[in-house]
Amino acid sequence: MKFFDRLEKIDRRIIFFLVGLAVIIPLIIPLGLPVDITGPVQDVFDRVEELPEGSIVVVSCDYDPGSEAELSPATAAFLEHCFRKNLRVYMMGLWPAGPELGNLALESIAPTYGKVYGVDYINIGYRPGGPVMLVSLGRDFTDLVRADYAGVPIDSFPLGRAVKSARDIDLVMTLSAGDPGVLHWIIYFSARYGTEIATATTAIMAPQQYPYLSSGQLIGLLGGLKGAAEYETLVDKKARAVAGMDSQSIVHLLLVVFIVIGNIILLYQKRRK
């Protein structure tokens, strides 16, 4: 049974290589596995569908390049839906790089729907201060928001002064990778001002959101890249997230195989003792 002993001590670079292959091959040769739609994603989609034209949606990009792969596809798919429904988008971020990442999606999607900056959408940039800032922001936007992300005075845009307090917001969509993020939007903003919150989170954060889904504090959830793939499917704009789902499936299968082999080794070691 030297085989198991050798397997136990396998060079980790072989594992790395197999993982790399499991990601690359399905991207080059797609399997086209169907993407199922889960309840929490459908709930976000349905709520956006119900919003009347001209409603104001705050899109808070609370992430950075480290989570870009998971949350940028969700940002793009959500913005696609908002513009298609003629909703007005008020972008911001609790993380410094978030609004800039969101802006990349805004700049590529808004023109395709003929949307005008400052009229149909605006980006007010990074807002420091986390939870305390959210309490203050909900009470009085005008006090805190004085310039857009590029430093242009907010009063120079028609949409700039459309939001005076939390009462003027119809929905908040937070694309969240940690703290500050969705938790703070729920307990510091929604709990105080009653605004509806939807979220797209990194997969790591998704399990923590279920208590808030069940209490109704969150209206819906896009969990990780899979959540983004579901939203891309719902808005019929299949892009990066859907393209990645085959690789995601194959790597997960591979990891299950690793886990099984690891446990066979454990059984063998137990028996030998």
Binding site: P65, G66, E68, L101, L255, F258, I259, G262, N263
Partner: peptide, 27 residues
């Protein structure tokens, strides 16, 4: 900044796989 940040965190995928093989055991 975007590619460096994104790649830095994606390294963990390989280590998660290695951990799944070595440490995830039903003891």
């Amino acid at each position: 900044q975007i590619p460096l940040g994104a790649t830095m965190f994606s390294l963990l995928a390989f280590f998660v796989a290695s951990a799944a093989f070595r440490a995830f055991r039903a003891r």
